[in-house]
C-alpha cells in the first residue's frame, strides 16, 4: 500500500517538476510547481513526518506559491519568447543530464548499503508535539534568533519601498 502510494506521488512529483521547466507560460509553471509541492507533502507524510507535511502544504503550496503567482501577475509576464538555442546545448543537454543523474544514482547506491535505507513507518518523531519540543528546548536559540532575521526583512522592505527620503 505504502509502496504504491509512494510510486504514484513520486511519479507525479517528477513529471510535474519536468513540466515546470517545459511549460512556456509562467503561470503554467507555477501551477505545476504546486503539484510538486503537494506530492512532496504526501511523501513526507508517508515517511512519518506529519508536521513537515502540513507545513509543506501551508507554507510552500499555500503562501509561497500565492506570492509567486501575485508577482507573475503584477509583472504581467507573458509566455517566454524563444531565444536562439545554442548548438552545443541542444546536442549535449539531455545526454549530460542523464549521465549526471546516472552517476548520482550509482554513487548513492554504492555508498549507502541497503540496510541503512529509510523504511516506511520506521520514523516516529514527526508529530507537531515532538517538533515543538525540539524547537523550544534544544533548538531554542536558533528559533529565537530567526526572529531577528524576519524583523530585518520587514524593516528592509519598508526602507527600500518608502517613497523618498525627506
Amino acid at each position: 500500500m505504502e509502496l504504491i502510494l509512494f510510486l504514484v506521488f513520486a511519479g507525479i512529483a517528477v513529471v510535474a517538476a519536468i513540466n515546470v521547466v517545459v511549460q512556456r507560460h509562467p503561470i503554467s509553471s507555477a501551477v505545476s510547481l504546486i503539484a510538486v509541492m503537494g506530492s512532496l507533502a504526501v511523501l513526507y507524510l508517508l515517511l512519518g513526518a506529519e508536521f513537515i507535511a502540513a507545513a509543506q502544504v501551508i507554507v510552500y503550496a499555500g503562501a509561497i506559491m500565492v506570492l509567486f503567482v501575485f508577482v507573475i501577475m503584477l509583472l504581467n509576464a507573458g509566455g517566454e519568447t524563444k531565444a536562439g538555442r545554442s548548438f552545443v546545448a541542444s546536442l549535449l543537454g539531455v545526454p549530460v543530464l542523464v549521465a549526471l543523474l546516472a552517476l548520482l544514482a550509482f554513487f548513492t547506491a554504492r555508498i549507502y548499503p541497503r540496510d541503512t535505507e529509510v523504511h516506511f513507518g520506521g520514523f516516529r518523531g514527526g508529530t507537531a508535539q515532538s517538533v515543538g519540543r525540539a524547537l523550544f528546548t534544544t533548538y531554542l536559540l536558533p528559533f529565537e534568533i530567526t526572529s531577528i532575521l524576519i524583523l530585518i526583512a520587514i524593516v528592509g522592505a519598508i526602507v527600500l519601498a518608502r517613497k523618498e527620503l525627506e
Binding site: P142, I145, I148, L149, I152, V155, G156, V159
Partner: peptide, 12 residues
Amino acid sequence: IGLEISSIASYI
C-alpha cells in the same frame, strides 16, 4: 542564521 542576519541587513 548569523550569516543571513548579517548579509540581509547588509544588502539593505
